[in-house]
């Protein structure tokens, strides 16, 4: 199954508490929506394979595990990500104002300078909008981000947000191809045997 997958991409979802990050994630990966979803507990990451322009990409989409609540996301969360979805709530201006902080944090910990960013204004199904679409668009333009308004509840724009992001990543040379060259060792419970390096160079243990 994995052979025809072009690449595996690490996508992050960030933004203030309560803007609907986990809801967007669950809507996209499981097509579910839970209006009572408590502050994030237990969502680690989700994997989904999508096809964009005939290219298959396996997405590992990482949630914040609630660590953003007291501004304590770990730098390690950001490592090696190729794309980021930055979410605000169109009915809460404070979540829009905080976007600058999030961009700062992204800038500090991101390991690559060409990470693709998508700004998502969530909860457009709600009546009491506080942030105008044009404001979001303007902010995105200023910071070279893709932009979309969405609703995890009605499903509006969710699929599109992820697809556009992936399309953009795939169109950015060097962002994902190099991943296969300089990969680190992933630990697993399987015995690796003597996989590292030149095949025959086992330990002494193999000798007897």
């Amino acid at each position: 199954m994995d052979e025809d997958v072009l690449t595996t991409l690490k996508i992050l979802i960030i933004g203030e508490s309560g803007v609907g990050k986990s809801s967007l994630l669950l809507r996209f990966t499981d097509d579910t929506f839970d209006p009572e979803l408590a502050a994030t507990i237990g969502v680690d990451f989700k994997v989904k394979t999508i096809s964009v322009d005939g290219n298959k990409a396996k997405l590992a989409i990482w949630d914040t595990a609630g660590q953003e609540r007291f501004r304590t996301l770990t730098p390690s969360y950001y490592r090696g990500a190729q794309g980021v979805i930055l979410v605000y709530d169109v009915t809460r201006r404070d979540t829009f104002v905080k976007l600058d902080n999030w961009l700062n944090e992204l800038e500090t910990y991101c390991t690559r300078n060409d990470i693709v960013k998508m700004l998502v204004g969530n909860k457009i199904d709600k009546e009491n909008r506080e942030v105008d679409r044009n404001e979001g668009l303007k902010f995105a333009r200023k910071h070279s981000m893709l932009f979309i308004e969405a609703s995890a509840k009605t499903c509006d724009g969710v699929q599109c947000a992820f697809e556009e992001l992936v399309e953009k990543i795939i169109q950015t040379p060097g962002l994902w191809e190099s991943e296969s060259q300089n990969r680190g060792v992933k630990l697993s419970s399987k015995e690796e045997g003597y996989g590292g390096g030149g095949g025959a160079c086992g330990g002494y243990c193999s000798m007897l």
């Binding site: 994997v47 989904k48 096809s51």
Partner: peptide, 15 residues
């Protein structure tokens, strides 16, 4: 465009 969706690698635990 969605060929396959899997949550096999993910852990979602609710408490």
């Amino acid at each position: 465009s969605t060929e396959e969706s899997s949550s096999g690698d993910s852990t979602a635990v609710k408490k």
